[in-house]
Design a binder for these strands. Sequence first.
DNA 1: AACTTAATTTAGATTTGTCTAAATTATTTT
DNA 2: AAAATAATTTAGACAAATCTAAATTAAGTT
Lengths: 220, 220
Amino acid sequence: MNYSVSEENYIKTIFHLQKKEGTVTTNELAGELKTRPASVTDMMKKLKAKKLLHYQPYQGFRLTTDGSKVALGIIRRHRLWEYFLAEKLKFTWDEVHEVAEELEHVSNKKLIDKLDAYLGFPKKDPHGDPIPDAQGKIESGKKIRLPEVPLHTSCLVSGVTNQSGEILELLKHKKIRIGTTLEVRKRFEFDQSLEIRTGKQTIINISRELAENILISYES
Amino acid sequence: MNYSVSEENYIKTIFHLQKKEGTVTTNELAGELKTRPASVTDMMKKLKAKKLLHYQPYQGFRLTTDGSKVALGIIRRHRLWEYFLAEKLKFTWDEVHEVAEELEHVSNKKLIDKLDAYLGFPKKDPHGDPIPDAQGKIESGKKIRLPEVPLHTSCLVSGVTNQSGEILELLKHKKIRIGTTLEVRKRFEFDQSLEIRTGKQTIINISRELAENILISYES
DNA sequence: AACTTAATTTAGATTTGTCTAAATTATTTT
DNA sequence: AAAATAATTTAGACAAATCTAAATTAAGTT
Ligand SMILES: [Mn+2]
Ligand SMILES: [Mn+2]
Ligand SMILES: [Mn+2]
Ligand SMILES: [Mn+2]
């Protein structure tokens, strides 16, 4: 019922990785967590023994229903703390993740539920990712990536898929953040770069690499 | 420069224990931390190697100047979180300690200094204990215990020496908290119990055991 | 001062999480 | 399908933090 910091970091990372591919591999996870494949295999045996993981040697792995529930609890804590840090302590967008990475492991249910209430039950973290509620329910999302957005259609930045310091720095420089309204004006076939309008009349260029990491919703 | 949760719990506990006695013994520390004396000895060697502790076998131990600095950092984090939990999240007096016991180990300087600012640089935690500032400076206190207070003199409850659930429950029942104004009306020689006035005209009795754990200042 | 008891330390073991190097299995290329 | 390469697992080791049981040192008592 209570998991170590290590176990929690593995569980949460598997949850995120399996979203994209359905199943997660040893090397993928080792890369993400900056450990060695052998360490991953060791931990996978442990998580399987605790019935949090489906795993047969050489077959990759994914979380069981129980494992996903645990993951959603960790993600709820992480994102609530991120919201707190940004909203109340005035951390910037790109600083919150690192701190939340530690705070997420303080797992006192009453603490988290009271924090949630204090923050006014926020629906999204500062990166635009949905915050699971106390029951572990999470908003579906149905976001698309910027390259898929049709031309000349106003749309809303609702997240980024990659949250490295590098991309956040670039977005900050281009003044793009969650909630920014965009319109794609031109798509260049040569390099798949985009010309977009932000705000009233600012015209900027965005590389294919960057565009693929910007998530869009039409909610407004 | 960075210490494990275990090391931090040892360091903090030594700091509190050495305040009373000057020097701390193996069994004392084992009792307080709910570990075995052998484990204490192991850790003392480690802390000595890190120059946080004065320690010669069989001679007891106390923190070095460096060790005390580390302790004050932990205590600062602990008490700021206690203040946050009580003030912002509406935890009660007796619930905050347990949660702060975990939060104190998230040691990100920027987080703590921003939290401090957000809370308005509080001087005291919800138990009346002083909060060290960012430089590790802590208020001297110069508190006395209730039995030493002269008769018929209005004074102020500023803390408790024992913070067990039991004493907090008792104080809550007697409606005594930090900031309560008291006056000792009678002292009974037979059992050293006290008759005191709280607030305008409430007269209650307090046992010797309880009185010895109530700290008083005259600041108001 | 010798004996007894209490406190402390040491020796050796265990659990958790990690690693390197070697062995095994799966996948891709020829 | 064999050979080469890549991915994964196993074997064995290590550091951190803990424990039990035994040995040692200190303190208290006759
Ligand atoms: Mn994050
Ligand atoms: Mn984490
Ligand atoms: Mn603690
Ligand atoms: Mn306190």
